Computed example of a mutant assay.
Amino acid sequence: MAAKKPLNVVKIRKMKEQNERLTMITAYDYPSAKLAEEAGVDIILVGDSLGNVVLGYDSTIPVTLDDMVYHSRATARGAGNTFIVADMPFMTYHGSTDETLRGVRRLMQEGHAHAVKMEGGLEIAAAVKSIVQSGVPVLGHIGLTPQSVNTIGGYRVQGKDAADAKRLMDEAKALEAAGAFAVVLELVAEETAAAISRELSIPTIGIGAGRECDGQVLVFHDVVKYASPYMEKRFVKTFADVGSQIRGGIEDYVNEVKNGAFPAENHVFKADEGVSESLDSLYGGGRSEEATQQNAPSASDKEKVGTQG
């Protein structure tokens, strides 16, 4: 497959104008990023969802800036020709502008991201504007915002009634006005997401937000069912089941080692002719008789386990 050229924010906006759907997937390390790039995705998101699917947390809240820098850097090494967005983790953009920009700088300089993603709407618009003015592209994220799950009443669909739909529209417009190049809509009622997508001049990227968004994003581990146990989600389609294949492969490995089938003849390396005899002559062909006798079970030991002498 010929090497592709990475997108930029101008091309991303152009794709909306040309009605070309955007594809985005999360990745958190070198091999998953490399596979995603080879598959042709437009954007890779180094999401703080790594807290759930890679680090074993029950939410994204424990994920630190150091975690994000580490995983973004590894992802960038695997996908040098793909536009990479890194999440700003919990509480790294709600303080002073200087503090926010220090976090952004780390994700860009140390994590080698091309853009950052931030959850929230009106309350973070000023921070988004400051970051964009500093020269860093920002991807917005509204609807279900996992970092705020404790204040929005859990994992529930957003924008189902008129008042909530208007709130989301206002937040999306605020992010657009602040300079965001696109907005993720997560777990949003389809009609609301469609209206927002029509109203904005920047692309919307949906996850559980229906069919009318300008693009879609899914978590890598959901796409390929790489989890145990795997939790089915209504808004997710799995396109492969590598989890079962991985588990089955490891089970086969364990069984073959236990029964002596692995390593087989074709897995070993041979020494020069005569090496085995030379070692035997030097070291007595294995453990000495004295060592063998010392490790042999005594008569009393045999009696304890019912062994016949």
Rank of each mutant, 00 (worst) to 15 (best):
R247D: 10
M169W: 00
V104Q: 03
H267Q: 12
V63C: 05
I205F: 03
A163R: 12
D252M: 11
V184N: 11
I44S: 04
Y253H: 01
V136G: 07
I202S: 04
P203G: 08
V183S: 05
A194P: 01
P6V: 05
I25D: 02
E251P: 00
N255D: 07
E99L: 10
M24F: 09
S32H: 01
L45V: 13
T204E: 03
G135V: 14
V217F: 08
L35Q: 02
V138K: 15
E273S: 04
G249L: 01
G159L: 10
Y253P: 01
G210N: 01
M15T: 02
V63W: 11
D252Q: 11
G154K: 10
I207E: 00
T26Q: 09
A79G: 05
K304T: 14
R198C: 08
V254F: 09
L7W: 07
G154R: 11
Y93W: 06
S244I: 00
L282E: 09
G80K: 14
Q158E: 14
F83D: 10
A172W: 07
R21W: 04
G306R: 08
I61W: 01
N150S: 14
D29R: 06
Q18C: 02
T307E: 13
G135M: 14
A261Y: 00
N52M: 12
M68F: 09
A193C: 03
A291C: 02
L122Q: 13
P146I: 09
S72N: 05
S96E: 08
T238Q: 07
L7V: 08
A74S: 13
L65P: 04
D98E: 15
S288Q: 10
G80F: 05
R156H: 13
A209N: 07
V236I: 10
A182E: 08
R102I: 08
K237A: 08
H71N: 09
E273H: 00
V54D: 01
D241S: 08
A264S: 09
F262R: 06
Y57S: 03
S201N: 02
L50N: 05
F235E: 02
S201K: 06
T97Y: 14
I246M: 08
G120Q: 12
E123D: 14
T75Y: 06
T192F: 11
V188F: 07
L65Y: 05
Y28S: 01
G206C: 02
A165Q: 14
I124H: 02
Q308N: 10
A2S: 14
T151Y: 11
V54R: 07
I124Y: 05
G40I: 03
A189T: 13
G285Q: 10
G306K: 09
G284L: 13
A296Q: 04
P6W: 04
E110G: 04
E123Q: 14
N150G: 15
R106G: 08
E186C: 10
E273W: 00
E232L: 11
L279H: 07
G120F: 12
H267T: 01
K270Q: 00
M169S: 11
D87Q: 15
A115P: 06
R21N: 01
G78A: 09
L45Y: 06
S134A: 15
